[in-house]
Design a protein around this nucleic acid. Structure first.
Lengths: 133, 133
DNA sequence: CAGCATCCATGACGATACTG
DNA sequence: CAGTATCGTCATGGATGCTG
């Protein structure tokens, strides 16, 4: 395990040897840099349910601009999380599919997504309490 | 479950009723808005290992500015994920602790963090392949 | 030690217009 | 239909200096 890497398997004991660097190349930070944006996870979730074409995605994700959809899809494709399939009809038909790697990520996100659904109200309550002091 | 909420428990079947809105108030999006920033998760991980004072955190997280550390800690405190404890010594001593809510989130992130450690190299490889075409 | 205030650079994102 | 190009706006975050 290189410096700046941590896996957080156990708990307190064995501080997982992240030296004291917690470097920018820490994988968790790299991942968050990619999926921490406004649309990536949403797109992954939708593609996890089935292949979709550009416009279908656009319709499902209300509020996304055409530019951000393209940009995010490219980024996901570049990261090997989705693939792009063109059928040379007229006009062209482009379908996006999630890759096994992308599906693995989606699985890893599942707990987080469920936690959000269950606990964000508590977070909102904490915020309200904080703000009202 | 309100519109725009999804939990992704099962899989394809039962598309989890997110209408077609996928609204901005979807809890996952809200959560990502908060932890998708540059430092929140890192701080949570460190505090998950034990209480730490301001400067201790600063030393552990190389590269964080004083401003961002303060700002992120406030945000986490506001969200009920960490608490701030002041000892009125001279000079003051401020310790930050993770809350049960924060610990729950950390648990929910564990899979994601582990995935990052295991699979980010694959992502990097995919990127390299994409860029070299 | 802990932390706020200020200034500034960068980039994320949205709106709009145009192309194969 | 599936994009690219361009422009403007705004938020994020870094650097610096000051305070109790």
């Amino acid at each position: 395990m290189q410096d700046g890497t941590f896996t957080l398997q156990g708990h307190p004991e064995v501080p997982t040897r992240h030296g004291d660097v917690f470097a920018a190349d820490c994988p968790t930070r790299q991942l968050l840099d990619r999926i921490g944006d406004k649309w990536s996870v949403l797109i992954l979730i939708l593609l996890g349910e089935g292949n979709l074409r550009h416009n279908a995605l656009k319709r499902r994700i209300q509020g996304i601009s055409q530019k951000m959809l393209s940009q995010t899809l490219r980024s996901l494709e570049r990261d090997g999380l989705v693939t792009r399939h063109v059928r040379p009809t007229v006009p062209v038909e482009v379908e996006y599919r999630i890759t096994p790697l992308g599906h693995g990520l989606l699985n890893a996100l599942r707990l987080m997504i469920d936690w959000a659904g269950a606990k964000m109200p508590e977070v909102a309550a904490a915020q309200a309490a904080y703000d009202r002091r």
